[in-house]
Design a binder for these strands. Structure first.
Lengths: 344, 344
DNA sequence: ATGATAAATGTAATCGATTACATCAATGAT
DNA sequence: ATCATTGATGTAATCGATTACATTTATCAT
């Protein structure tokens, strides 16, 4: 009964109706009589019909897919965001493509091509390092209003975004260390051109200032969110004359790299030096010592970004544009063993 | 000059040729005169033409995309494999979709639908837990010969695969511990239905037997590759009367979970107990202590899997089927600080 | 010079679904 | 009883690229 490649015409014949009716049974069931609808559905079952997405895409100019651009798939931070996004789009029968920014940087493909090739209907960008050139291409091709940012964002790009409250997170971290009794607090930043780096650094500086804590230039150490940059930061700290008693890291990965090398250099965490991270990836609870950190609600970031994109695409159809006021997601301090009162 | 949505017909007009010629200029340039080809290419540039993938897919029945199925995107182990895969397909102008098995389990979508909806031309499966039901669906729909496994595989499925030499890896781990002087060696396994679990456990048991080392049932601890299962295993070890002096873990994540809880329980790694992992993810070098582990060449696994799939798809066109003899990738012992001679 | 062969290009059918518009029947208002 | 209106369904054009087949032109052997 089930034939190999049933087309809509085969279903139409089986049900004794026209192809238009079959199509309507699927996309606008309300237009049909209960009886017709049922008989079409029965015909669909008996033929094993499946709509051909390519044909549909060609005709409707809707790809039924969105792209998620991730700065680095190797960073486990992104997994739960992706899960949140997939979850939301699963309901919509929209597929989610995932790409790593680095792959694109190397192949020299332009992101805008995904839109132009009608491969995607929208883009969720987790990478704030999108080039001005690329943004310009999006605008020129009229697809800029099908893009939302999540986690990261591009300053002044006037695109919708979902973000953790990074400034608040940094404040929480500093206040926590302060309440433990620390006054000499250092910070390992993210890469210099990153928006998160800026927000977290500012939040940190602001809170440290508000609390009247001392500052030293060398206590702001440039990193890039990576394990390796944590290692380098630790080396610097080990060599300092005026060593901080606590370090707030811009990411958990940095904190791991830092703790690893501090320990190798003879400092104990948290006895000799406290460390606080940012992200709360799964491993943070399993590091030695377990990492005090700022939790981002990754799942919420994902679902909200997805919802926001759906909204944009929807508004788009009525020639409107979504607001670019950021949606903020709360962060939370998670106290574990890498932070403790200073010993001296 | 550049018009919004140039179709192939627009290019044809601009170049004063037929659409067939334009199409050939792109897919079979050799068929055309140098002059025609050039003028078509010029017209393509001036119109800003881009081929509409949906139309092409509809006509050629080739999606120009492959799907990679990952058991758990949150595990950073997979990132470099994905990078390897993307790299290879980037050359082929084929897009790579990435999906997490868990998402599918929950949405109740069938994988085979991706094929039936002409959304993909092939599948690289990193998950050996593909259900028999799903495999059957692939076979019934004649797409089973467009699937390759990488890292994991399904026993008796007779599908091509790329694998690390897991047995050899387990042997290397055990021999390393033996050479350090350990005789009481435990093993935390993967999930019981996993092929890797089996291979690594067998390799471990075999080598331990060959070296004449003692065995105890409780030294084989069931895990599931996760951090949490490492924690549970550690609790068991801490409670043992006949405690092993070394533990070989089926994954790095397990090793982290294990070390975290062993340490919390008062045992020092490696002084009181040595730990060896499997995978060599980036973090292994940054844990405290850094983890001795078996390195899998993840990038090679990726590129080889991609090459294998391309080969399958190619053979497929000539109605042939690729061999299901596994392609093996060598593993390597990486000695770091989590393993040392036993103290007693 | 002629016919055969090869090379280059064009014509038009085709992939499969959607949807504007047309048609027909049924309902209700007057 | 007639016309307008609504609701249900059908007809056929359309999305854009590919490619089998047809046609034209050039080349070469005899």
């Amino acid at each position: 009964m089930v034939q190999k490649n049933a087309r809509i015409l085969d279903v139409a014949r089986a049900a004794g109706v026209s192809t238009a009716t079959v199509s309507r049974a699927l996309s606008n069931p309300d237009l049909l009589t209960e009886a017709t609808r049922e008989s079409v559905l029965a015909a669909i079952r008996s033929t094993g019909y499946r709509v051909n997405k390519a044909a549909r895409t060609l005709r409707t100019r809707q790809a039924g897919a969105v792209l998620v651009l991730v700065p680095n798939l190797g960073n486990p931070f992104f997994s739960k965001i992706l899960a949140g996004i997939s979850e939301r789009f699963g309901d919509e029968d929209t597929s989610v493509l995932i790409a790593d920014t680095k792959d694109h940087a190397t192949t020299g493909k332009y992101l805008v091509d995904y839109f132009l090739d009608s491969q995607i209907d929208g883009l969720i960008c987790l990478d704030g390092a999108l080039s001005e050139n690329e943004l310009q291409q999006f605008r020129e091709n009229g697809v800029a209003d099908k893009i939302v940012f999540a986690c990261e964002w591009v300053h002044n790009a006037q695109l919708p975004s979902v973000r953790s409250d990074n400034i608040q997170g940094a404040r929480l971290a500093v206040r926590h260390l302060y309440e433990l009794g620390h006054t000499k607090i250092a910070h390992v930043t993210g890469p210099s051109d990153n928006v998160l780096t800026h927000a977290r650094r500012e939040g940190m500086l602001e809170e440290r200032g508000r609390l009247g804590l001392p500052s030293r230039d060398e206590w702001i150490i440039r990193g890039d969110f990576s394990l390796e940059s944590g290692r380098i930061a630790a080396t610097k700290i080990l060599g300092m004359q005026h060593r901080p008693t606590a370090v707030f890291c811009a990411s958990d990965q940095v904190a791991f790299g830092l703790m690893s090398t501090l320990t190798a250099g003879g400092l104990r965490v948290p006895e000799d030096i406290s460390v606080v991270g940012f992200d709360d990836i799964e491993l943070s609870d399993f590091y030695v010592p377990s990492l005090t950190t700022i939790r981002q609600d990754r799942h919420a970031l994902g679902t909200k970004a997805a919802a926001l994109l759906l909204e944009c695409i929807d508004l788009n159809k009525s020639a409107k544009t979504a607001t670019d006021t950021p949606v903020f997601v709360d962060v939370e301090l998670v106290v574990r063993q890498s932070s403790a009162p200073p010993t001296s």
